[in-house]
Design a protein around this nucleic acid. Sequence first.
DNA 1: TTCTTTTTGATATAGTTTATCAATTTCAAA
DNA 2: TTTGAAATTGATAAACTATATCAAAAAGAA
Lengths: 143, 143
Amino acid sequence: MSKHAKEMGILKEHLENHQLKFTRQRELILDAFLKQEHITAEEMYHQLARKDPHLGLATIYRTLNLFCEAGLAQARHFGTQTQYDNVSHKGHHDHLICTGCGKIVEFENCDIERLQEEVATKNGFTITTHRLELYGLCSRCRH
Amino acid sequence: MSKHAKEMGILKEHLENHQLKFTRQRELILDAFLKQEHITAEEMYHQLARKDPHLGLATIYRTLNLFCEAGLAQARHFGTQTQYDNVSHKGHHDHLICTGCGKIVEFENCDIERLQEEVATKNGFTITTHRLELYGLCSRCRH
DNA sequence: TTCTTTTTGATATAGTTTATCAATTTCAAA
DNA sequence: TTTGAAATTGATAAACTATATCAAAAAGAA
C-alpha cells in the first residue's frame, strides 16, 4: 500500500465520478506531487524527466489541473507562473509576508475563518478553500 | 483643475524624482485608471481605443507598471491576467470565487480587517496591503 | 528655437498554458 | 482473455500575456 493511499483514493473517486481513467501517468504525477508543498508544471516536468523521459509537458499541466478539480491541489498565480499547492500539506495556516526582507510568518486565526464562513454564507457560497496573505513590514525592516 | 488632482500630484512628484516626463498619454491613462476599482491592461486598451485609437498596448503596460512604482496602483495576478488595483480606492475589497463557473463576488468586511491588524501587530508587522480570496461553489453550481 | 533625453507606437520576442490530433491505453463487457 | 468504445497521451501548434526593441516623436531645460 502506497504512502499516499488516502490521496490516491480521493483521486480514484474523482475519476470514477467523472468517467475518467486511472493511468500510469496520473499515478506517477500524484506521487511526485504529494512530496512537494508546491511546484510548477515546468519544475515537475524536469523532475520527472529522469524517471520517464517521455512524459509530456501537456500531460503534466492536464494532470495538475485535474488535481485541482479533485481538490488535491490549488493553483496560485505567482509572478508569471502558476504554482500548484499541495492542499494536504497546507493545513489551515495563512501568511504574513514582509515586503522588506521576504520573511514569512505563518498564522492561524479561528475568528477570521469564522467571519469568512459568514461572508460566504451571506453570498450563497460554500467555501472549499481560501487564501489570505498579509503584506507589510516586519519590526526589523520598519526601522 | 482635474477631479484627480491629488493623484496627479503624486504622479508628477514621482516623475520629477526619477527624471521622467509628464506626457499626454500618462495623464490620459491615469484619468481612466482612477475611475476604476481595478482593471487589466487589455481592458484599458480597449476602453481608451475610443478616445485615442493610436494609444499602444505597450504604453498601457508601461504606464500601469509606472503607477505601481509611484504607489498609485497595485498589481495582482488574478486568473491568467494581471489586475491593476486602484490604491486610492479606500475600501479594499476581497473576492469570493466560484470554482464551478468562475463567478466573482467582491466583498468588504471590517471585522476581518480588524482581526488582520491584530494578528499583524501580535507578530510585530505593519500591514501595507493584503489579499484574501475565498474559493468555493456558488449557490447555482452547488446543485 | 535648439538640443538632449525620454517616451511612444508598432511589432518582434519571450515565456506560459491550452488546443489539436493520430496513436495508444484503459477498462468494462463479451 | 479478447474485443471495442471511450479516454488519454505525447508531440507540437496555437493562443495569450507581458516585455524588449527601435526608429520616430515629444517633452522640457537652456
